[in-house]
Amino acid sequence: MTAQVRTFLALCSRDLWVTVRREPAGFLIQALLQPLFFLFVFGRVLPDIGAAQGSYGTQLLPGIMSLTLVLTALQNTALPLVIEFSFTREIEDRLLAPIAVPWVGAQKMLIAALRAIVAAALILPLGALILPGGIDLHHVAWGALLLVAVFGSLTAAAMGLVLGTVVQPARISIMFALILTPLIFTGATFYPWHALERLRWFQVVTLFNPMTYVSEGMRASLTTAAHLGSGWIVLGIGVAFVLFWALGLWGFMRRAVA
């Protein structure tokens, strides 16, 4: 094992240690509270009071998994980076570790993606408990689901890296408001993409949101319902992945080495 790989793993072990030993409750609350309420209100309350069809939950679950995956990954890179670069300066000790600087950024994304995958996986049992019809796992393509989860979370983590390094610390709360809300509501989360055909302009808008491809990827691997073409899903996630990793690592280098 080369020395830099050992350093990389040591950086990861610090993050895992903090997640598991210091703040497991904090992590779960941050990752799961919002999706829990979305699942309950949209998947249970609305059908129960007759404001949505009973089958809505089946369409909702993949969307909520995607939302959890993307938001957890994004927030777990963006927020710590903003804080560590400006207020606590904790990042400095890592940047001085004997490893090439881009790997420090890559390591941040990897851990954020891992946390996001754990959070998204926890949505499945939550869905089984909350949704009126439970969940149906007969048609799940597990391999495809895993691929969507891995690349979806890595892409979202890179979006977080871009936000956390490019945006001025003082403006981060404005940027979050400006970016998160559109991201959540244009990401094919609460509706399947193909159902937007009657609202063509909005359907086109959603294609600019990387989360749309993650949500549709989840829908494609979890259900038999109609979804965005698989090729488009792969292309969408692939393009976003390359774009945001390049931008994220560039931004990280710029912040790390003046």
């Binding site: 020395a3 050992r6 350093t7 040591a10 950086l11 072990s13 610090r14 240690w17 903090v18 210091r22 703040e23 606590t88 300066r89 904790e90 990042i91 400095e92 000790d93 890592r94 570790a97 004997p98 490893i99």
Partner: peptide, 20 residues
């Protein structure tokens, strides 16, 4: 720029781990 998520001794041991 100490790591505030860690205790004092962990600050030292993780740092040394970064150096192998």
């Amino acid at each position: 720029n100490l790591d505030r998520s860690l205790s004092a001794i962990e600050n030292l041991t993780f740092h040394a781990a970064y150096f192998g």
